[in-house]
Design a protein around this nucleic acid. Structure first.
Length: 271
DNA sequence: AGTAGGACCTGGTGGC
DNA sequence: TGCCACCAGGTCCTAC
């Protein structure tokens, strides 16, 4: 998402803003929000965990627009005169100089939008308490093993905890556990050094592949052109309940862990 | 400390 | 075809 947004919007000035769903604006109103953004240019776009950060500037002034797309939010970028169908789930639009628009589409309206000064945004608990970036060099396999060592919760819950590793969601957590041959209910502190190494490798490989294939789209995700991601081509367990495990042919099972579904192979993922 | 359950929303799917 | 129950990639809150 961020790569696409960077390519298409960096350096452009915001000339208009509209929002039809006040509840997604967590610290402003549809009335105050536009005037806070108009005139600012998009200087940089980054990401921390699942939060997308737009760094904006106008003369000496700087602001950050934080957007968390939650489960179903995604961005669509269009040029003036685009013939693409109007998406009925667009709830926020940034109109850029030159006629380009950046729209936030979200069927379930769970997206979260926050606007503020750099210090305000960076101090927010949703950013401050985030854990390691899974692909950063600082998350070594040794460090991952240490992190797991102090957690008595199930490994699945721990992988989904953004305060430990930031950015993994339900699909990739299941995928990573299958590749690591670790059962999702295994208490995290009981994983072996070898398993931690497998987990570390699977985490890196799964996410790198997912990025290369531009996302999963097992449900709603679309890129900024409205296209689906291709991760389904390499997906191994998520959503394959009842189908044969690719390693041992035993049917994939699905259980609930912390209210979310977990898919795994009961034979090759060790409890 | 950890987890379950509900809340926030809408739409897709499968069963009858 | 229509209706209904159930399910959903995230996170936050309360209650146990």
């Amino acid at each position: 998402m961020v790569d696409d947004l960077r390519k298409k919007t960096l350096g452009r000035k915001i000339v208009g803003v509209s929002c039809d769903t006040p509840r997604i604006l967590k610290n402003s109103t549809p009335r105050s929000f536009p005037s806070c953004l108009i005139g600012f240019s998009i200087k940089e776009i980054t990401r921390r965990g699942k939060n997308i950060l737009f760094y904006l500037s106008l003369d000496e002034k700087e602001k950050i627009l934080l957007i968390h797309p939650k489960m179903t939010g995604h961005f669509l970028v269009k040029d003036k005169g685009s013939k693409k169908a109007v998406n009925p789930h667009v709830h926020l639009v940034l109109y850029l100089e030159g006629g380009r628009t950046v729209s936030l589409s979200d069927v379930r309206k769970f997206s979260k939008v926050l606007l503020g000064e750099r210090e305000t945004i960076e101090a927010l608990p949703e950013l401050r308490y985030l854990g390691y970036e899974p692909l950063s060099a600082t998350l070594t396999r040794t460090r991952l093993k240490e992190l797991m060592g102090i957690e008595r919760r199930s490994i699945k819950k721990v992988l989904l905890d953004q305060g430990i590793v930031a950015g993994l969601g339900n699909i990739y957590a299941d995928e990573v556990l299958w590749h690591s041959r670790v059962h999702p209910l295994r208490p995290a502190h009981l994983i072996t050094t070898q398993e931690a190494a497998a987990l570390h490798g699977a985490l890196r490989k799964t996410l790198t592949t997912a990025l290369r294939l531009r996302g999963a789209s097992l449900r709603d995700f679309r890129d900024t052109e409205g296209r689906k991601g291709n991760y389904t081509r390499v997906r191994v367990v998520y959503g394959r309940e009842g189908e044969e495990c690719y390693r041992c042919a035993v049917p994939v099972e699905r259980i609930k862990i912390g209210g979310r579904s977990a898919h795994f192979c009961p034979r090759c993922q060790k409890r």
